[in-house]
Amino acid sequence: MGTGYGLAESERLPKTIFEQAISGNRRSLAKLLTAVENGEVSHELLGISPRVVDGSVIGVTGAPGVGKSCLIERLLSTWTSDGLKIAVIAVDPSSPLTGGALLGDRIRMESADNNPNVFVRSFATRNQPGGMPNAVVLAADVMRHCDYDIVLIETVGAGQSEIRIVSVADRIVLVEAPLRGDEVQAEKAGVVELADMIVVNKSDLEGSDRAAANIISALEVTSNPPPILLTSAKTAVGIEDLAVQLRTLPAKPGAELARARERLLTAWDSALLSRKDINEVLDGLASSENSAQEWVEKNLRW
């Protein structure tokens, strides 16, 4: 649906649509992203090679309600007034039962509807493992080819699964907020260790200094702690600094293996779930004909 009805045959070719998108046609870019999301195109088909990591694709992750969308809106207005073009991929969860999704991140991004130098696209997870659709990698590459200087990827607001963002983004920003409790810090250990920057948002609230201090003290025991910034998406305090630092943010050393592991898992999951017989396999497992462990050992040995 929505990938070509009403367009002439020649206009439906991905390569043609890609060229139109590169020349600045928003509708062509949107249609191409649909094809990417549906797995209908590949780097090969578009004639591009996978992007070299250069810090221009930035993942923004963190628990629900810490202010990821509002922070992104602040970055959009700051960067576009500096003359940059910014694309956003906003990921929200799909229902595991119906496959439906309610995609609401743009509500908090005013620039999404107004600013000509901003392109926001909502992606549903479509139940891919780790809450990160595999198509996001190609989508971000396509956006970079269409002259968007920076691509921001907003993850679903969730816990440990957020680690999958390291397989698609060059840099990871973890957003935290005060008053979230000590246990939560422990729960977030995995992401904290991989983040290239930690932002403690809602600095207008009481307790934000202490939240930042808690994170700093938790990280002091690890080597190479990432920079920690205090911001308020509400009052814009700290936003300028964040916008500047994000443009030259170095990758956190020592995270290479973890990133490679996530990339491998993403590719593996994708290969598994795109098997032609996947529905039969799932039906078999659901009716308990065999256990998942048995199936894996029988079919995925090498």
Partner: peptide
């Protein structure tokens, strides 16, 4: 997959959302 725009949108903003979200 449903994209909700929020309140008080202009016709131009709504059309832009329809285009960008395909």
């Amino acid at each position: 997959e449903v994209i909700y725009t929020g309140l008080r949108r202009t016709p131009e903003q709504i059309v832009r959302t329809v285009i960008d979200e395909d």
